[in-house]
Amino acid sequence: MSCSTVRGILYNYISAYVDDELADTDRAAVEKHFEICAHCANERYEIEQMKNTLHYEFAYSSPYGLKEDIKDKIAESAEPSEEVILEEKSQFSWRWLNYIIPPFATAVAAVLIVLAFLPQYQLSVMMEEEIVSAHVRSLIEDNLTHINSSDTHQIKPWFSGKVDFAANAKDLSKSGFDLKGGRLDYINKQSAASVVYQIRDHVINLFIFPTTEDDMIDVKTFQNRGFNIVKWTNQGLEYCVISDLNLTELEHFAQLYRNQMPLPQSKLY
């Protein structure tokens, strides 16, 4: 085994050796390498040393009293809540209210729901408009990319330092989507990264910017002024793909891109 194999970027044999996760043959090969390479042997020693320090010295113990607090909370959540008890008590004397409150409460709830979602709806419409405008602007101003490259390893570092999140460019050329480059844009009052792809004559802008919305595994699609838009959110970032490409292929693009990134895991509770 050579040093470059042993210290592979995708598979680091020294790391796996220290963790005892290697098959016997690989283990023997790595041990042989340690005998002839002081550099790798030293790296192994450093990793082991760090591993021991982390394991034996860096564990936080839960504070005194936490266990009792948890027990109290669990007992509490297993009991019916106070409101339920009050409701049961008041059932006799206030029974007539039961006939009046439900329709009234339903009406109030309906109004509140409309009021709560209206701003959000308007916001998403405004954002959609902004995305379309940014896309059109990128096409007419001869301003499609600030960095021209089909190399994902050039584009990602180009963005770092310009935006405060990791903007991933992915190589999807096998499926016909050629990477053209990257561009900085401004959407929703903040800096956005745009990764530009092209298939046949169709330009695709993939906008990435921070969002406070929860992860949305299902993609949303809509059309605006003849453009198709596909969007989703993942780990605090909103992804918005726009193009004049037909929706089926655009969804395929989104699917390919998403398949190369970790999806938010399903919640167990």
Partner: peptide, 15 residues
């Protein structure tokens, strides 16, 4: 505060 929970099993090689 860091209480060294795993310390009972401490070995030699540590920083």
């Amino acid at each position: 505060f860091i209480i060294e929970r795993n310390q009972g099993l401490r070995q030699e090689k540590i920083l």
